[in-house]
Amino acid sequence: MKTSRKNPPVRYALSLTLALGLISTITWAQDGAAGIQEADSQVRSYFEPGTNLMYAIGAVLGLVGAVKVFQKWNAGDQDTGKVAAAWFGSCIFLVVVATVLQSFFGL
């Protein structure tokens, strides 16, 4: 009996494409370390201004929260404690996250 091979040119073309793709990947990977270093320096250059922005947003949230809590306190609302905990908790969380990220990345 004769064995039939299904589409041998397709297999060869697929093998050739895979081999060329692997060769091109290896060629591009030779410069990968320099690309990683460049990406690292770019991320580090944006990190400090981003952290300062998070601190500024936390300060603005603290001021807005203080005004909201003061208004509720003067109005005699019963849920003043909940509102204070929500506003100040959120701005403290934002500042803590910025500080932890800064210490985690060692900047």
Rank of each mutant, 00 (worst) to 15 (best):
S4C: 04
N7C: 02
P8T: 03
P8A: 12
P9Y: 13
P9R: 11
V10M: 12
V10E: 13
Y12C: 02
A13G: 11
T17R: 04
L18K: 02
L18G: 14
A19S: 08
L20I: 10
L20C: 13
L20P: 03
G21H: 09
L22P: 00
L22M: 14
I23M: 04
T25D: 00
T25H: 09
T25A: 09
T27K: 07
T27Q: 07
Q30K: 13
D31A: 12
G32T: 10
A33N: 13
A33F: 14
A33I: 13
A34K: 14
G35Y: 06
I36H: 08
Q37M: 08
A39T: 14
D40K: 10
Q42I: 09
Q42F: 09
R44D: 07
S45T: 14
Y46W: 00
E48G: 08
G50R: 02
G50M: 09
T51M: 11
L53V: 04
L53N: 04
L53Q: 08
Y55K: 11
Y55S: 05
Y55F: 14
I57T: 00
G58L: 04
G58K: 01
V60Y: 01
V60P: 00
V60G: 00
L63A: 15
L63D: 05
G65A: 06
A66I: 04
V67N: 04
K68I: 06
K68E: 15
F70S: 15
F70K: 03
K72Y: 07
W73E: 04
W73N: 14
A75H: 03
G76F: 05
G76T: 08
Q78I: 09
D79W: 05
D79K: 10
T80E: 03
G81S: 15
G81N: 11
K82N: 14
K82Y: 05
V83E: 14
V83T: 15
A84H: 01
A85Y: 10
A86I: 08
A86W: 05
F88P: 01
F88C: 00
G89N: 03
S90D: 12
C91D: 01
I92E: 10
L94Y: 01
V95M: 13
V96T: 09
A98F: 05
T99S: 11
L101D: 07
L101E: 03
Q102R: 15
F104G: 14
F105S: 07
G106R: 12
